[in-house]
Amino acid sequence: MTDAPVPRSQGRRSVLVVGEALVDLVPAEGEAGVRVAQPGGAPANVAVGLARLGGRPSFVGGLGDDAFGDTVGRWLTGAGVDLSLSTRPALPTALAVADPGARGNTYRFHLGDTATFALPDRTAEAGRFGAVYVGGLAAVVEPAAAVVAAVAREAARSGLLAVDPNVRDDRTLDPVRCRERLRELCALARIVKASDEDLVRLWPDASPEASCRELAERGRLVVMTRGARGATAYVHGAPAVSVPARPVRVVNTIGAGDAFMAGMLAWLGAEADWCTELTAERAEAMLEYASGAAASVCAQAGTEPSAPLGV
């Protein structure tokens, strides 16, 4: 990693992923009260997922100068993620303590004064990529949030911006300001992927379906995920298209939404040349592929998807 960008040509399947790479402390299988360190962070998960699915992701983030940062860096590069636009400040890695439950995963965060949110400003790089993805905690935690907003504005102006508004609650976060920032990013985006729970939290006065239709009416490709109940795509001027979740024996749900996002982006880059005005048939194909990627994560420990079979 260097502080200066490394010039190189970008193909149409390239994606600039901007955000956090941190360490999740997740429950150890069969050992109550024991936590295991696992590389994570929604944007980092998306970058690794894209690499595993044949995309060309470049990651913009800050990696800690500690052992956790070493682990995260090896994980990203081992998957094939380009880190030439990332930096490694002399700060520790942020931690997210995961608590999986019947209604999904909750987290408690240790974020302050970490390398994870000391993002370098790569706004000038946005136009060199097929698409730019932003989301996760970096979208709402300073100083990263200002960088994410600047890159998002440039991507919306010069290319294609994809946003996944992961809404997180933590005592260190201002819920009102967080939701304002995420709504602003969704307004800039051409692609929005959000869970039904995130949509309710962002627009509490409307149903998730109504919020999706409103976003899509402004020319966006919008996908709502509902966990085990499947996913729905909304395109301007066309009926919504839904697919069921792939049946799978669930081992883990951490990172499933990020795998879905990676699947969407991998499919759009490879099969649609980033066209977001999809026919019903193509929208269904995209959802099937993304659902397969998410199912591959749910069926195993870890957050790395594999290419769906039979899609």
Rank of each mutant, 00 (worst) to 15 (best):
residue 1 M to P: 04
residue 9 S to G: 13
residue 22 L to I: 14
residue 23 V to W: 07
residue 24 D to F: 06
residue 31 E to R: 15
residue 31 E to K: 13
residue 38 Q to F: 03
residue 38 Q to L: 11
residue 38 Q to M: 15
residue 40 G to H: 02
residue 41 G to D: 04
residue 44 A to N: 02
residue 50 L to W: 04
residue 54 G to T: 05
residue 55 G to L: 09
residue 61 G to H: 10
residue 61 G to L: 05
residue 63 L to R: 03
residue 67 A to V: 05
residue 70 D to L: 06
residue 70 D to E: 10
residue 73 G to F: 00
residue 81 V to I: 11
residue 81 V to H: 12
residue 82 D to V: 08
residue 84 S to H: 12
residue 86 S to Y: 09
residue 93 T to V: 07
residue 95 L to H: 13
residue 96 A to I: 01
residue 98 A to N: 13
residue 101 G to R: 06
residue 102 A to W: 03
residue 103 R to H: 15
residue 105 N to R: 15
residue 107 Y to I: 13
residue 111 L to Y: 04
residue 116 T to L: 10
residue 117 F to H: 03
residue 129 F to T: 00
residue 130 G to D: 00
residue 133 Y to F: 15
residue 137 L to V: 06
residue 139 A to M: 07
residue 145 A to R: 03
residue 151 V to W: 11
residue 152 A to W: 07
residue 156 A to Q: 14
residue 158 S to V: 14
residue 162 A to W: 03
residue 164 D to T: 01
residue 167 V to C: 14
residue 167 V to T: 07
residue 168 R to E: 01
residue 178 C to D: 12
residue 182 L to Y: 14
residue 182 L to N: 06
residue 184 E to R: 01
residue 201 R to L: 07
residue 208 P to K: 14
residue 213 R to A: 08
residue 223 V to Y: 06
residue 225 T to V: 04
residue 232 T to L: 01
residue 233 A to G: 14
residue 236 H to Q: 15
residue 238 A to F: 10
residue 239 P to N: 12
residue 241 V to Y: 10
residue 251 V to I: 09
residue 256 A to V: 02
residue 271 E to L: 00
residue 285 A to I: 05
residue 286 M to W: 00
residue 289 Y to W: 02
residue 291 S to G: 03
residue 294 A to V: 01
residue 294 A to S: 13
residue 295 A to Y: 08
residue 301 A to V: 12
residue 306 S to Q: 11
residue 307 A to N: 01
residue 309 L to F: 03
residue 310 G to V: 02
